[in-house]
Design a protein around this nucleic acid. Structure first.
Lengths: 140, 140
DNA sequence: TATTGTTATACTCTATAACTATA
DNA sequence: TATAGTTATAGAGTATAACAATA
């Protein structure tokens, strides 16, 4: 097998393990990984995000963001507010419940990642992060 | 952000890029990445695979394999045959078209992976493969 | 009783296209 | 006319549960 394709297979495998583990940790919290990821983006943002901005950060199309935010709003974790600066924009603001839930989500995420990557020494984790950063931060 | 969760984010991002690139390469061939992956497993196997065995190798449940194989069979790339050794088992055999198509699929896969990982030197690619192997080959 | 595969169903993640409201 | 978001729809990938056929 070509060197590159083997790498592809490994990324696939590790990603699979990650989703499985994270999903299990997340299950009791009643959220999907995608919802948790969106909640994180919303909370981590300095200023309230618009739908389009969340789409950009999640690297998905605006229509797909609508579904994710619907779920978060229905769960009472975020609210949609009309942007005072332009009525066609929606601002996403977190509720106290959303922020509380996110603390649990972050802990679940930490546990899942630690479980998976603890086979590596801290130095190896650094190396891995370095290499993946190069791949993930190239244009395109 | 914790070291581990940052790693999780990077694996997610690289996986996303990989699926996107591979999907684009694969589009003209009329196959999804999942179908291509299954076809590869079937062809790479020494002896004809049973459905359960394919499920194990793809790390998905047997029910999910049924759908993938349905698609491959409908496209004329594989055939289901009754196992002479046990009538409740199904053997998966490739057609000449399946094997020809796989050559194209493999080339598409090679191009997608090369495009993504060519920002790394060959030595870095080795390193990355080493590290990911450790993570992916742990039990669980 | 255990194994193999399937029917039926559903959830997550994501997309394109067409439309509405606003700018 | 361009932008922000939504309704409608679809497809890929995966799962659980119940069941039939076979062993």
């Amino acid at each position: 097998m070509a060197v590159e394709t083997e790498l592809a297979e490994l990324v696939h495998g590790v990603g699979h393990r990650l989703r499985r583990g994270y999903g299990e940790q997340l299950g009791p919290l009643g959220m999907s990984p995608g919802q948790a990821r969106a909640l994180r983006m919303i909370i981590d943002s300095e200023s309230p995000l618009k739908m389009v901005q969340l789409a950009e950060r999640l690297k998905i199309v605006p229509r797909s963001v609508t579904s994710v935010v619907d779920a978060l709003e229905e769960a009472g974790l975020v609210r949609r507010e009309v942007d005072p600066a332009s009525r066609r924009s929606t601002l996403l603001v977190t509720t106290p419940e959303g922020r509380a839930r996110y603390e649990q989500v972050r802990e679940a995420r930490r546990r899942a990642a630690e479980e998976l990557f603890s086979v590596l020494t801290p130095e190896q984790q650094d190396q891995l992060r370095e290499l993946l950063s190069v791949v993930d931060r190239q244009p395109g």
